[in-house]
Amino acid sequence: MNIENLCKIYKTKNDEVKALDNVSYEFKPGKLYAIMGHSGSGKSTLISILGLIETYTSGKITIDKKDISKLKDDELSDLRMKYIGFVFQDFYLDEHLKAYENVMLPMLINKEIKKEERKEKAIKLLTDLGLKDRINHFPKEMSGGEQQRVAIARSLANAPEIILADDPTGNLDEENEKLVFETLKDLAKKGKCVIVVTHSEEIKKYADEILKITKGKLES
């Protein structure tokens, strides 16, 4: 994933706020990137743009040599399904679905995964993340750390190349934070490009690259 001169300007009635200011960087597979910065520095905006869930004002993003600025909404959806897995601070699990069913959700639109394979794949992902005993549990029956690991398993459902995590440990205690970072580190070791936005200094133990963002400018 490559970004060049990325700018994001939020327009209000009387003012303009530059959230990202000419940000350029190349994210490579097999590495864990940590993006750190103060509140309002633009880190969440950056990861949202990288995850194709937020628009940008100018610049260029290429994923697998494809310039995404030329893509239509449906094509962006296809790209998100194929290349990107997103983990959020608030987990966003469907409370009516069991853990494995939450993981199955992204698979429903992936034609490459056969219907009969979905459940098996979801169970395997949860087992790999140490949630074998929680497969049939509803989100409310799990701890925050477990819910976040279910969310990580869901982000891996369609085997994306890029994993984006927006403050994934923001709602977790230290023990669970460690577990989540270890999980993300393992994914990077398996060849995924993992980009984490966080406030936690703990990430420094796991990250291959630390990127600082200040007033919309990225510093490596």
Partner: peptide
Amino acid sequence: ILKASGYK
């Protein structure tokens, strides 16, 4: 979250 996962 479904849209973020690729749903149209």
